[in-house]
Amino acid sequence: MSYPKFRYAVPKTVRDAVEILHAATEKGEKAIVLAGGTDLMVQLREKSLVPDLVVDISRVTSLTKIERMGNEIRIGPLVTHSMLASSDLIREYVGVLSEAARTVGSPQIRNLGTLGGNIVNASPAADTIPALVILDAQLILTGPKGDRTLPITDFFEGPYETVIEADELLTGVIVPLPPPSGRAIFLKLARRKALAIARMNLACMLYYNRQKEVFEWVRLCVGSSTPRPVRMTEAEKILEGQPFTDVVLQKAGQAAAEQMVALSGLRSSTAYKKPVVGDLVIRAVKLAVEKG
């Protein structure tokens, strides 16, 4: 299989990268950002993507860090899934992201694939996205005019579509430290037990107050089921302030299922996904509560 012809640039700084992207875009060229390449290489091989210029950002070392800054963790977009899976900082404070990253592809893919690529590629099945959504992550985009920061849920417009401009880079992912009372869970459902794209995935974080016997707060996001990632707000509302009972859980599951159908319409997969979303939400909430 031959790959399309393109030029290749390998900037060392964000500034250079943005400048190259900007200059190419001004000239009317198709320039694309290359990080780990695990999505791009497939698209190039299929020739579903034929760029004039590939801008490899993997040598922009400032984008590979994981740092704690006060009440937030800042993750560079070049951080790989392997790094997320093994980072002590991530595991300690935002373990659910680490759990999600651990389920991506294979060891080989996790060593190459980056968090930034997972986000910008914007596949509905991306495993880190539901985790980032319940963590209230913010994204920093850097373009020729400087930075802009936006909540992750505002980033996506539809499957494989985002608000990023052709001359912008994702340069940071900010994850506010979740309240220590929160318990989180990530579930992935796929056709086989490893190396499989999610048929559905789910991240959930909640605080169940054992004294008061009520859910104080709940955050839920189900991937691969809605056109853009969203919080399952209907289910969250049902749970909040309520006790941990089968009736409440059933209602929450039902609400999640209905919200999914409302957002994605009836599809051939709905017969499967609708009941499963509901039941998975119930399972996730139970598992999170069991975490103590």
Partner: peptide, 20 residues
């Protein structure tokens, strides 16, 4: 699969210039 800088990767997923 090959080992690149101590880590396994799929050689088909790595654009040649990244070998530099």
């Amino acid at each position: 699969t090959v080992i690149m800088d101590g880590k396994v990767v799929n050689a088909c997923m790595v654009l040649a210039p990244k070998m530099d």
